[in-house]
Design a protein around this nucleic acid. Structure first.
Length: 515
DNA sequence: CGTCTTTGACCAGCGC
DNA sequence: GCGCTGGTCAAAGACG
């Protein structure tokens, strides 16, 4: 597909090349308004070299870009003291300068004031949007809880045997990720097939593989997408189980998140430890290689499906896209890939809700905490199909966050990463270079890869800023989300960073937690 | 004979 | 409204 072609172009250009997508990293930073003050300060320092460097943050060395990609820079912008400091600096310097320089400084100061006011307005607007979003989310949550409680009471009256009434499960969709959603997803089929009533999953939620995280986006976008999304299982499901209502919507939400894994392999598909049955093959537009559709057959009614397609530009790259949730325990071989996709999906989606504790809170009965989740996920959490791409085709290096323009996946997130060789069930291409460390799991690998990368925070900040600052750009990736979906996306992106634009706090928290 | 794959048809969403 | 595209179904064939 075209997205894959773009991805390939991005990868081939090593992201810092001359291609429009690759060169956007620094440009994005420069065009963001939040940094304008520091830039102006640096410019002022350049005009007035006699100004003593008395400010706590040292200026960049000559020749260095004036952009501080470190996250401390953003913190400086969050307060008004810096502006005052700069103004005083300018005033002091202006007294000892010529009139020409004085005029320049005055102009700069005026511009600085204007930008400061603009930033304050934008910040207040963002805060307002965040507040509204939180309120709406809370209201929806409350409504769903009430509805679930009511339905649970009705269900107990009507059917006492049905201990797992769908109502509380539906409520749980909004409360915590993973098991509840998986149970929801399979409930319709269970009711239809009359089996797995005593599924061990309910007792062993940690054994789930690819977990449902998209449901956390349900309050935001599930309702409209329920009619518009061409997602798997939408068109045919009503025929199979016509009585699907809330469960169906939850399944849609669960399936929204897609985790794409790029790996070099000559095999028809990578061995991820699960059993798959091919149920279709199509020729996708823009790719001479057919796209194969697989369904998990390890358990009846398992909703996990995957698409396997070779990259159009590099036939050695196999692109496997996972979607859905396993409703059965996974073998260790499958757990490796499942954990990887889980981590990726968590990063992708967890930030779309304010209750990031639900991810890391052990009381939710879910998998291990993911400290980085709430900072990474929102980057690509955008309707209709948030997609995160785990790139296993590149050796470990500076972590890059790619935004590509594609209608299907407005904000795909590409994380070049490396896999430990001892990951069971994963076909490791011979040429793939691994890092020196050998974490105990793929999950740890992902975490370590992100945490150990010094450029991650800057890349993260750049990506967030690009998301925030480019909704009006016709060429931006947000083009696909123009309209109703853009505000939630922006809100989701900001939501992971309370008190935005104070991004560095969250990012710093991320870095420390993952170490 | 059962299971799996193949492949054409069907359906829904979306853009023009 | 129509055509394109993605996703799925199901009959037919292949295979062990």
């Amino acid at each position: 597909m075209e997205r894959h072609r773009e991805m390939e172009l991005l990868h081939s250009g090593e992201y810092s090349g001359s291609d429009p997508g690759g060169s956007s990293r620094r440009d994005i930073i420069e065009e963001v308004d939040f940094f304008s003050k520091s830039r102006l300060r640096d410019e002022a320092a350049g005009l007035q070299p006699e100004i003593p460097n008395s400010s706590p943050p040292p200026p960049p060395p000559p020749g260095e870009p004036s952009i501080n990609t470190g996250l401390n820079l953003l913190t400086m912008n969050s307060g008004g003291s810096q502006q005052h400091e700069v103004e005083e600096k300018m005033k002091n310097s202006s007294s000892s300068s010529s009139n020409i320089n004085n005029n320049k400084l005055l102009a700069l100061q005026a511009e600085l004031d204007r930008l400061g006011d603009e930033n304050r307005k934008l910040r207040s607007m963002l805060d307002h949007l965040m507040k509204n979003y939180n309120d709406l989310q809370n209201q929806l949550l409350l409504a769903m809880q009430q509805q679930a409680r009511k339905a649970a009471e009705d269900g107990q009256k009507e059917n006492k045997n049905d201990v797992q009434s769908p109502a509380p499960i539906t409520a749980r969709q909004f409360m915590d990720p993973g098991p509840a959603c998986m149970q929801d997803t399979e409930d319709p089929s269970k009711s239809g097939e009359g089996e797995e009533e005593q599924s061990p999953l309910r007792n062993h939620p940690h054994e789930h593989g690819i977990v449902s995280l998209a449901k956390r986006r349900l309050p935001m976008d599930s309702i409209p997408s329920e009619q518009t999304s061409p997602s798997w299982g939408t068109s045919k499901s009503p025929k199979q189980v016509p009585e699907r209502t809330t469960d169906q919507s939850s399944e849609l939400a669960c399936r929204k998140a897609r985790v794409s894994v790029r790996a070099r392999s000559d095999a028809p598909m990578i061995s991820d430890g699960c059993q798959w049955r091919k149920y279709g093959q199509k020729m996708a537009k823009g790719n001479p290689c057919p796209r194969a559709y697989y369904r998990c057959t390890m358990a009846a009614g398992c909703s996990v499906r995957k698409q396997v397609q070779r990259c159009a530009e590099d036939k050695t790259i196999l692109i496997t896209t996972y979607e859905g949730n396993h409703n059965h325990p996974l073998p260790p071989a499958a757990m490796a890939m499942a954990n990887t996709t889980t981590a990726a999906a968590t990063m992708l989606l967890s930030g779309s809700t304010s209750s990031k504790d639900s991810l890391t809170n052990p009381t939710n009965g879910f998998y291990q905490p993911m400290p980085y989740a709430s900072t990474m996920a929102t980057l690509s959490a955008s309707a209709p199909f948030p997609t995160i791409t785990l790139d296993l085709t590149q050796p470990p290096g500076p972590l890059q966050i790619h935004r590509q323009q594609t209608p299907a996946t407005p904000f795909p997130l590409t994380l070049p990463m490396y896999m430990p060789q001892k990951v069971p069930g994963l076909v490791v291409p011979p040429g793939l270079q691994f890092g020196q460390q050998q974490p105990s799991s793929v999950m740890d690998t992902v975490t370590a890869a992100i945490a150990s990368d010094p450029n991650f925070t800057s890349a993260l900040a750049a990506a967030i800023k690009s998301i925030i600052s480019t909704p009006r750009s016709p060429n931006a990736a947000t083009t696909a989300t123009n309209g109703p979906s853009t505000p939630p996306a922006a809100a989701a992106a900001l939501h992971a960073f309370p008190g935005s634009p104070q991004f560095p706090q969250s990012c710093t928290t991320f870095s420390t937690n993952t170490n």
